[in-house]
Design a protein around this nucleic acid. Structure first.
Length: 517
DNA sequence: AATTTGGTCAACCGCCCAACA
DNA sequence: TTGTTGGGCGGTTGACCAAAT
């Protein structure tokens, strides 16, 4: 061990301390990155004292000399990290304030996982703190099946673009990054139907959509790709340009989106989670997780606590987790979504929609049909601004149900795969509309199933009814569909889909199972 | 009361870049 | 120009704790 000539008393003290550390807890790792005999693990207060003392005298930097000059058995990297994250002055301790949380969300919408840059914008906070906060938040929201950003964040971020222009800090690449982030943010829970398949002999089809991780071309969009598919570390240019390849012309490509959801949101298996548990286990066991509904009253993030600076009518993430049920008798005699699960929610929404239909869209009605929502949404200037920013003259909203049964429905007979794609496409379009989220919670699969398909667009496209019926059959099983077909001749499609007109016996087996819960 | 589960946080690892010899 | 080194960054891991079962 060599010492510099300016070795001070403090350093001598540090060395004394260091000597006393030899028996401290921790271990001495010999793996790569740290030399033999270098201590790893949690820092002790004595080590902290040594490091602080050293930095006071020599300043930050030259971390590799810390070990030599102070006797600390820590590698330079470890010293730097300890100093930066815990010891340096002006560090804020404690949990993030609401404003800081808000800032993090906004910054992440702009920068992505640039923790250090984000930390630079948050005085006293470290990149590690921000990273940890974000990661836990992601997990939470993923599990809840909620979008990562509140609806106002994208606009808010774009409104800050002048700064971008001035500094060049966030170039087009950043923006594209935001695009592909956004394309995933409204990712909706994928629903696995493996169980339905197993339980319904007639339906032997298995979703191919969930087994798409191997489709390399689709990974371009995948913000939260499975680890195995992620490059170790892409520099910004690589990452953004690689995303550009696929996303620039398909920013709202529903297929791009869905084909890239190689990693469905946790908690998304609405049909196969605890809500539909059965005493007769399905032959194909899948991961059982609570659906997003059951997280409705948990802490799902903090931005919903903020008053949104704009577009408040869109609602916040908090809106996404609020029950869309109308108040009144309908609610009173039914179990809550939280307690009853998807089935009751489906019933709720179907009944609500049917009710709204029967009341001939009374202006006072508290229930808005999807078509109503579409109409109203078109008038929202903020919404238009968003899509114009994206350079998309046809907003996803305008492409919702209408487009599914017109533009996206070719005249030829569609394969089951295509039907399913259309179904998912529809869900994506609906989810892309923050407006709708405030009225009906389309981040929830139950809402999608219960509501979006009953849009009047369907009834206005009789020729597509068979297509839709087939697709729905794939969704819910042949039994259900056959029943529907029997009634389809005399009743409107909407009525057919109003679940209130169905007895439980008409429901597929998977639905009936919930009765035994 | 014991066990399980989930969340948080500190620390480490590996990669990359810039500076420098 | 090339190789080396220090430092920064993002991803990941594991320990710890609290809540739930």
């Amino acid at each position: 061990m060599s010492f510099t000539t300016n070795e001070s008393e403090g350093e001598m003290l540090s060395k004394d301390l260091a000597d006393s550390l030899s028996n401290d807890e921790g271990y001495f790792g010999g793996s790569s990155g740290s030399g033999p005999g270098q201590k790893k693990g949690p820092w002790t207060s004595a080590e902290d004292a040594i490091l602080v003392d050293y930095v006071k005298k020599h300043g930050e930097g030259n971390w590799n000399s810390v070990q030599k000059n102070s006797g600390l058995s820590r590698c330079g990297k470890s010293c730097r990290l300890r100093w930066a994250n815990h010891l340096r002055p002006n560090l804020k301790k404690g949990s993030f304030t609401l404003e800081e949380e808000r800032q993090i969300v906004e910054l992440h919408a702009k920068m992505g996982n640039k923790w250090a840059r984000m930390a630079a914008r948050l005085p006293g906070r470290t990149d590690n703190e921000i990273k940890n906060y974000w990661n836990t938040r992601i997990k939470r929201r993923q599990r809840a099946g909620l979008p990562l950003y509140p609806p106002d964040i994208p606009i808010y971020a774009f409104n800050e673009s002048p700064q971008t222009k001035n500094t060049g800090e966030y170039s087009i690449r950043d923006r594209s990054h935001h695009d592909f982030l956004h394309a995933n943010n409204y990712g909706i829970p994928d629903v696995k139907f493996d169980n339905l398949k197993g339980d319904q002999g007639g339906l032997s089809y298995v979703f191919p959509l969930l087994d798409i991780s191997a489709q390399g071309s689709c990974q371009n969009y995948n913000f939260m790709r499975p680890k195995a598919h992620q490059p170790k570390r892409l520099r910004e240019s690589e990452m953004f340009y690689s995303n550009f390849n696929g996303s620039l012309n398909n920013r709202f490509s529903p297929f791009g989106k869905f084909h890239n959801d190689a990693e469905p949101f946790n908690g998304s298996h609405a049909f196969v989670n605890g809500n539909f548990s059965t005493s007769k286990p399905f032959p194909e066991a899948v991961k059982l997780e609570l659906p997003s509904l059951q997280f409705a009253e948990t802490d799902l993030g903090s931005w919903d606590r903020y008053p949104l600076p704009q577009m408040s009518s869109f609602g916040s993430a908090g809106d996404c987790i609020q029950s869309p049920f109308p108040t009144g008798p309908l609610q009173s005699d039914c179990l809550s979504a939280r307690n009853s699960g998807l089935l009751e929610v489906l019933l709720h929404e179907a009944q609500a929609l049917k009710k709204s239909k029967s009341s001939e869209k009374s202006p006072n009605s508290s229930i808005a049909t999807p078509s109503d929502l579409m109409d109203s949404s078109v008038l929202n200037p903020c919404e238009m601004t968003v899509w114009e920013e994206y350079g998309d003259h046809v907003s996803p909203l305008a492409q919702s149900a209408q487009s599914v049964f017109s533009e996206h429905t070719p005249t030829r007979e569609k394969s089951v795969d295509e039907h399913l794609s259309d179904i998912k496409l529809e869900k994506v379009n609906l989810l892309s509309s923050p407006v709708r989220e405030t009225q009906l919670d389309f981040s929830r699969p139950d809402a999608l199933l219960g509501a979006c398909w009953m849009d009047k667009q369907i009834s206005e496209c009789p020729k597509d009814q068979s297509v839709a019926t087939d697709a729905i059959a794939t969704f819910l099983g042949e039994d259900f569909c056959n029943d529907h077909k029997h009634t389809n001749g005399t009743s409107s499609y909407n009525e057919g889909w109003g679940l209130g007109s169905y007895s439980w016996n008409s429901m597929p087996a998977a639905f009936q199972m919930s009765e035994h819960l």
